[in-house]
Design a binder for these strands. Structure first.
Lengths: 220, 220
DNA sequence: GGAGCGATGATTGCATGCAGCGTATACTGG
DNA sequence: CCAGTATACGCTGCATGCAATCATCGCTCC
């Protein structure tokens, strides 16, 4: 909900940003326990800012109260389904808004070009069978679409969903059928945006995320 | 994003919940500055948990960094528009999911009855020209719809949007045309849910929130 | 040998202390 | 009377200290 332009100073926010970044990179295993002292030592600050950051992660749902403090939140199959349902709608809205802005001439040509480029990068990474790079390139593309929507609150909601999913996922791209479909679907979304057709873009995005949800298999 | 079933213990979370509740009740004026010491004294705890709670409010965007600490976030017209755009889509999804669950027999008859009752309460409050009660009853209805959707992540996203809007709003219900339309639109949403028709429910909800967005005028 | 129980250790949760910083106020000079 | 400046106060931000709590490990008893 915070407009991303804010960059509050302070060690607490830095710790929070760092941890959030680590989560979205899947650097922590689900169920792993986090201790304040260890993080404080790791990040070179005292326990207080770490404590604040963990509190924020708690409200984000990225960590859950555990026996002795907090643990990295896992994702039950039901939760994953709920997340993808929400994500499908949010990304559909993002694509729709991006297309609307394009129709109104509010998107720079460079932004559209960047979308094409991002699609290419995903394709390359998938063809190279590099799951890590694929996930990152894929996220970059979707982030770019979210940015093109021009709605900071939507972007924030998307980030929350992505981060929550990213904890447990290295996207399942070894399914050859899904790997083949992903680029085609990406191109359909971008085509809808480029054409300035909100309905087409929305449907393409929704279809894509629903397919991604079916392909997703949470780590055990 | 936090599944609402979690209820982390601790004074920090209690402070956060209290403040969040106050915000959603509009108890703080936009721009008002909040000091840790005053809140700590008010709530009978030390500055530390207050500090943590304020940190969470910062990431929620409900407060913004100010000269001397934090101030209650105001809402620019552009932000309000973005919020209502997102809200329209989220509530549309909520109504759609609620209708789907109804079609699958997953909604208890008591839930449907509660929706009807909530609509009636909004109507009464609006007819009584009680803006405060109207806003609360309206929020209660929308919360009920959100709950009927059965998706905790969607509920959380909705709460974030509502709270962000609630800071500056006591809904503008003195517009007689809007006041007359609101109950009709509410009934349309509930009718769609009761009929188990996701498309009808979605469109009704979207139409309603878009109308609400037009009627909304942020406090100066 | 297994199970129950107690002690110890680690870790959280909150309070307080202290330094740094910015704001506001009061005072002085023009 | 107004403007400029210096001082002092309030407030934040972080670190540390202390008490309470819970898990784990080892011991004893059956």
């Amino acid at each position: 909900m915070a407009t991303p332009s804010d960059s509050p100073p302070g060690s607490a926010h830095a710790v929070y940003a760092t941890l959030r970044h680590r989560f979205s990179n899947g650097e922590y295993a689900p169920g792993q326990r986090l201790t304040e002292a260890a993080l404080a030592a790791d990040l070179g600050v005292s326990r207080t800012p770490v404590r604040e950051a963990i509190g924020r992660l708690l409200t984000d749902g990225l960590v859950v109260p555990a026996a002795r403090g907090v643990a990295v939140a896992a994702l039950t199959p039901a939760e994953a389904e709920h997340l993808f349902t929400l994500r499908a709608d949010l990304e559909a809205l993002a694509a729709e808004l991006a297309a609307s802005r394009q129709a109104l001439g509010m998107l720079a040509p460079a932004e559209i070009t960047a979308l094409d480029l991002a699609v290419d990068r995903v394709e390359e990474a998938v063809n190279a069978h590099d799951p890590r790079a694929s996930a990152q390139a894929n996220l970059a593309l979707h982030r770019a679409i979210g940015a093109a929507a021009g709605n900071p609150f939507l972007e924030d909601a998307l980030h929350r969903v992505w981060d929550r999913i990213a904890v447990t996922t290295v996207a399942n791209l070894d399914d050859p059928h899904w790997a083949g479909a992903i680029t085609e679907q990406h191109r359909a979304i971008v085509a809808g945006i480029r054409a300035g057709d909100p309905e087409v873009a929305r449907k393409a995005a929704k279809t894509h995320i629903e397919a991604a949800g079916r392909a997703y298999r949470p780590a055990p």
